[in-house]
C-alpha cells in the first residue's frame, strides 16, 4: 500500500479552509498546520496511481493550495508488480 508524507503549501489566507477540505477526504490524514501555511498530511492509496490522483485532486480541486510537495514515498508492497504498462509509448 503506497503511502506518502507530504507538505501541502497553501495561500496563507486560506490555510484553514484547505485544512477543512483535506479532513473531508477519507484517505488523507492531516497532522496540523505548521509554520503558518504548511499542512502536514499523509496520503494513502492502494496504488501509486491512486496517490498521484489524490495529490492532483488536492492541488487542483481545492482552492488555495499552492502545491503538494512529497517528502517521503513508500511503495514497498507495490514493487513486485513493478512493471508498468507503457504500450502507448
Amino acid at each position: 500500500m503506497p503511502i506518502a508524507g507530504v507538505v501541502v503549501v497553501t495561500v496563507p489566507e486560506r490555510t484553514s479552509s484547505v485544512l477543512q477540505e483535506l479532513k473531508k477526504l477519507s484517505n488523507v490524514t492531516t497532522y496540523g498546520v505548521h509554520k503558518e501555511n504548511n499542512i502536514i498530511a499523509v496520503l494513502e492509496s492502494d496504488t501509486t496511481k491512486g496517490l498521484e490522483q489524490l495529490s492532483n485532486q488536492i492541488s487542483q480541486a481545492i482552492q488555495g493550495v499552492i502545491g503538494v510537495f512529497p517528502a517521503y514515498i513508500n511503495f514497498e508492497d507495490e514493487i513486485s508488480d513493478s512493471g508498468t504498462d507503457t504500450s502507448t509509448n
Binding site: V6, V7, I40, A41, F69, A71
Partner: peptide, 23 residues
C-alpha cells in the same frame, strides 16, 4: 499490512514531511 505497522508507517511519513519544513 498489519494495522500497527501501517500506523507506524503513517507516523513516519508524517514525521518525514514535517522534518522537511523544520518541524
Amino acid at each position: 499490512m498489519p494495522l500497527k505497522r501501517r500506523e507506524f508507517l503513517k507516523a513516519s511519513a508524517a514525521a518525514a514531511a514535517a522534518a522537511s519544513i523544520g518541524v
